[in-house]
Amino acid sequence: MISPEYCCTMAQYNAWQNRQAGAAMAKLSPDELSLDRGAFFGSILGTANHLLWGDTIWMSRFAGLPAPSVGIKESAKLHGTLAEWQAERFRMDGHIQVWAEGLGALDLTGALTWFSGAAQREISKPLATLILHFFNHQTHHRGQIHAMLTAAGQNPGDTDLFLMPETGRG
Rank of each mutant, 00 (worst) to 15 (best):
M59Q: 03
R61D: 08
F62E: 09
A63Q: 00
G64Y: 04
G64D: 09
P66S: 02
A67T: 06
A67L: 08
P68Q: 06
P68D: 02
P68A: 07
S69C: 12
S69F: 09
S69W: 03
V70L: 03
I72H: 09
I72E: 10
I72R: 11
E74W: 05
E74V: 07
A76R: 13
K77A: 07
L78N: 07
H79S: 09
G80I: 06
G80F: 00
T81R: 00
L82V: 10
A83T: 14
W85D: 12
W85Y: 10
A87N: 12
E88Q: 14
R89E: 10
F90M: 13
F90H: 13
M92R: 07
Q97G: 14
Q97K: 14
Q97H: 13
A100M: 01
E101W: 06
G102H: 13
L103D: 13
A105F: 00
D107V: 04
T109D: 09
T109M: 14
L112P: 02
L112W: 03
L112G: 11
T113G: 01
W114S: 01
F115K: 01
S116C: 02
A118C: 05
A119V: 10
A119C: 00
Q120M: 12
Q120V: 09
E122D: 13
E122Y: 04
L127P: 06
L127E: 04
A128I: 12
T129D: 15
I131Y: 02
H133D: 03
N136W: 00
N136R: 05
H141R: 13
G143L: 00
Q144I: 04
H146E: 09
A147F: 06
